[in-house]
Amino acid sequence: MAKVKYYYDSANLAFRKIKTRKRKKFGYVVLFLLASALFGFLTFVVLLNTPYFDTPKDRVLERQVENLKLNYAILNKKMDQIDDVIEDLEDRDNNLYRVYFNTAAIPIDERKSGYSKKNRYAALQGYDNSTLVINTTERVDALSKELAIQSKSLDEIVKLAKAKSQLLSAIPAIQPVKNENLKRMASGFGYRTDPFTKAKKMHEGMDFTAKSGTPIYATGDGVVERADNTASGYGNHVVIRHGYGYETLYAHLSKYNCRPGKSVKRGDIIGYVGSTGRSEAPHLHYEVHKNGKVVNPLNFYYGNISAVEYVAISKIANQENQSLD
């Protein structure tokens, strides 16, 4: 029940009841409602800025953050798998490919070295979950660098493989005439009896007996340097420069099947057996030179004979018999 207020009327010496005007009452009501609304709004704003009250927008943002965390976790798992693959590649690169091609391995500290630039990730600091983002970014950068180093290494291995393939193709590796029954070996490398002077002298090649006109094959890839008869004693002869320090000489030919400057492949016919020059009978005199020094051709027949055949031909070649030139 509302209190009744009075005032003292001095003129009539009596207390009279205070009557509130309706307009004033309405003003009080409006003022009260405005004050209540303002208080409610301020309370609502305060609650919005506390962790105890989530708006629909906050809940959406929270779900997005959780999804991002999940995606980062999945990304890190994938990077773990990529890291395993890269480590396997690096191991094979250092311990297989580079060993095979006789080149130095790439040090692990060089492969795993980080970036030297300071504060590289400063722009990512100061945010919620900055540690997660920075760590993931660092891993991506490290993997990218490892992949770049490995890619460069594989490019180098490809070049080495091509060079190795060219080297293997260039090395004299077959006999210069077909010798299925190992019957064409007449004289080997070393001191032999000269057929004309009967004195012992160094025989710097191997002699293969064969009928005139028997095909002679290039024993490795190369370029014909000479095909003439100007060298004393050799008669018609061919010299092939194989590269990597290798040269081969084929002497006493009846005729040529090549010309100077022509590129040849292992197994190409370059001429035919004869008995020109200082020769006692139709045969092929064959020499191998490495870095300007004559070497035993017997060591270069691995391309077309077995181990048993090598032993048999070695016994024949090492007999100190008479050479044919």
Rank of each mutant, 00 (worst) to 15 (best):
V29T: 14
L253G: 02
I313N: 03
I86G: 01
Y115R: 02
F196N: 15
S306A: 02
A317N: 10
G114T: 04
F53D: 00
Y7N: 05
Y52V: 00
S314V: 13
R278V: 03
K265S: 07
T20E: 07
F196C: 15
K19P: 09
C258N: 04
N257C: 11
Y191L: 07
A104I: 12
I270H: 03
L124Y: 11
S212E: 12
Y52W: 08
T214F: 04
T197G: 06
G27H: 09
V133Y: 13
N119Q: 12
E204V: 07
G222L: 15
S232W: 05
L61H: 08
I270L: 11
I157R: 01
N318F: 12
M1W: 02
Y234D: 09
S113C: 05
M206E: 08
R111S: 10
S10K: 04
E156F: 14
N181F: 09
N129I: 14
L48A: 12
Y6E: 04
L143S: 00
Y100C: 00
D88L: 02
K201S: 13
V288D: 04
M206T: 14
S151W: 07
P51N: 09
Y7M: 02
V223A: 04
N236P: 02
I269W: 02
P282M: 02
L96S: 03
L253K: 00
L284A: 04
F53Y: 14
V65G: 15
V133Q: 14
R241T: 08
G267D: 05
P176Y: 08
T55G: 02
P51S: 11
V65K: 15
K290S: 10
G126T: 05
A251Y: 01
A2H: 07
A161H: 10
A227I: 10
T103D: 10
L38H: 00
A148W: 15
V4Y: 13
P297H: 02
G267T: 06
Y121I: 03
H289G: 04
I316P: 00
D194I: 15
Y310T: 03
E87L: 05
V158G: 03
A104T: 13
T193I: 10
Y302R: 12
K255Q: 07
G267A: 04
N304V: 11
N135G: 05
Q319E: 11
G233Y: 01
S165R: 01
V308E: 09
K293F: 06
Y286Q: 07
K77Q: 10
K164Q: 08
N229S: 13
Y28F: 07
C258R: 06
L47C: 12
L284W: 04
A173Q: 08
N12Q: 15
S153P: 09
